[in-house]
Amino acid sequence: MPADHRTISPTTPHFWRDAQLPFIEARCIEDGRKVCYSRHSHDVFSIGAITSGSSTYLHEKTSLTISTGTVVLMNPGDVHACNPIEDQPWSYIMLYIDAGWLASIQQVCSVGEAQAFRPIAATHTHSVALFEGLLTLHAMLIDPAVDALRKHEATLAYCLLMQQTLGCSAPPVRKANQKVERAAAYIDQHCLEAVRLEEICRAANLSEAYLIRAFEQRYHMTPHAYLINRRIQLAQTQLREGDPITDVAVQTGFADQAHFQRVFKKHLAVTPGQYKP
């Protein structure tokens, strides 16, 4: 494919969004040495391509080295982090896709039921078609000369290709632990409050020691890390809607704007101001 599809222009914005295509967001990083993530998750489906160099890829309990040509995939809620290897240069692009919208694609492919999104089993792939297709789609999305209809059609076509290529395998089955899930639900409901561990334990009817161990096994985060991650997810939504950063910091439970800035950048390797439209 043409070399320019593999090169991320330094003038490309950190994030691309279009009000006519609210189900998708794009991001590019030209120099991965400048970003570093803590373990985090998203409430959307994420798919990305390593466009140059190599990096570490942490996905829940697995860790591996990925390099140019690798496509990575994260289902909503999957804990992950991609970070540089020492000072080696690397670059990548990412798409963040609404899981509900993607569920409609799965219906066309005859997987999943109703409108529920079915997780993709693969965490990464070396499929040339998916890699080059993702680069082409990203280039089209960020091109202001391409109209929204064509971008919409291209996104549909790529997601169909992804589903047909990777969506047939059964995702790993997670053994349900209703008490631990009650703990997560309690955090979800009270994430804007000063939640205490004993309150979570009381809601789940679990001891502190058991809760910490079982929660990490299920969600690959401590309850506190899960709480902070939920606040960041809510902050992302508010920032995309145009809310002032100072208001978002207060509304999402952070001590002050400086604290919010630090935690946001730690999770997303970008400041709230860079993320905000």
Rank of each mutant, 00 (worst) to 15 (best):
K266D: 15
E193I: 06
G69H: 09
Y210L: 14
S67V: 02
R6E: 13
Q233W: 08
D243N: 12
A176S: 15
Q20W: 00
Q261I: 15
A203W: 08
H220M: 03
Q106L: 00
E198S: 14
K175D: 11
D4Q: 15
A3P: 07
L134Q: 08
Y275H: 11
R182S: 07
R6V: 07
P76A: 02
F15D: 09
R118I: 07
T165Y: 04
L149D: 14
E132Q: 13
H126T: 13
E113W: 00
P223D: 03
K179I: 10
T271S: 15
A3S: 13
C109M: 09
E199H: 14
A148D: 06
S38I: 15
C109L: 09
E199S: 14
I200Y: 00
L156I: 10
E216K: 14
G253W: 00
A114Y: 08
Y96R: 04
G253I: 10
I120G: 05
A204M: 09
D31Q: 12
H40S: 01
H267I: 09
I97G: 00
W101Y: 13
E216V: 07
V71N: 01
S46M: 02
A269Y: 09
I47L: 10
H190G: 10
G77R: 05
I85R: 00
L227F: 05
G77Y: 02
P84T: 04
A183P: 00
E208D: 11
T65H: 12
V111S: 01
I212R: 12
A194C: 11
R240Q: 12
V71E: 00
V270S: 13
R230A: 11
V72T: 12
Y158H: 11
A26T: 09
A154V: 08
A194H: 12
F45M: 03
A154G: 07
S52G: 03
G133K: 05
L156Y: 10
M1A: 14
S52Y: 05
E193F: 03
V111N: 02
P172W: 08
I93W: 03
K61P: 13
H80S: 06
K266E: 14
L166E: 04
H40K: 02
S9T: 13
W101T: 01
D98K: 06
F215C: 01
L211P: 03
Y219A: 00
S207W: 06
E208I: 11
T271E: 06
G112R: 04
A176T: 14
T237K: 07
L130R: 05
V71Y: 05
W90P: 01
M74G: 00
Q164S: 04
G69E: 01
Q20M: 05
T155E: 06
K151V: 10
L206A: 08
I8E: 00
C36H: 15
I228D: 07
S9Q: 09
T70S: 00
K276L: 14
L161A: 10
D143F: 14
H124V: 08
D143L: 12
Y92R: 11
Q274Y: 06
H152V: 02
R231Q: 15
L130P: 09
R118T: 11
Q233V: 12
G77I: 01
